[in-house]
Amino acid sequence: MSQWYMLTLVGKDQLGIVAKVTTALYKGGCNLGEASMLRLGGNFTIMLMVSYEGDNKQLYDLLKEVVRELNLHLHIDVIEGHLHQHRDPEVRITVHGADRAGIVAQVTSVLTEAGLNILDLESDVGGNTNNPFYIMHIEGIATQGIAQLSQALQQLLATQHPDLKVQLEPIETLVM
């Protein structure tokens, strides 16, 4: 019986990481599930659901060579994985402003308190070394309604970050 694993692979970005990793998995009899792969700060990062009949050690052995060749960090977790259970986001929040410590912590803390269940968060630092700016997109489910989130953000801006730019919009999915 096959088991779901979560693979985390991180290394210096270079050509062919995805092709080499997924080819090794394919040849070893793995099936791929949902994945997130992206370049972060010059590194390439992979989070990948893999379904496999063997154990942790055997899975590691499948990737041993590629990992050595590309100098990747590999981490393997046994997980309880499920496909076909996507949840649709209800709200999207964009935050940007001059970069400083604590933006993510403070914004996500007040949002959590106001009932936001985060499904997806991506953030980036733009600008240049002297004038960095921080930008973040969050999609999630408003378990206590969107008005609560809006209120919480207004409160945060009024009391702590008057210069942050924050936008909030509902995501209405039309199914046809």
Binding site: Q154, L157, T159, P162, D163, V166, Q167, L168, E169, P170
Partner: peptide, 8 residues
Amino acid sequence: YVSIQTQP
């Protein structure tokens, strides 16, 4: 939808 105002 909502632009959160920066001035309290």
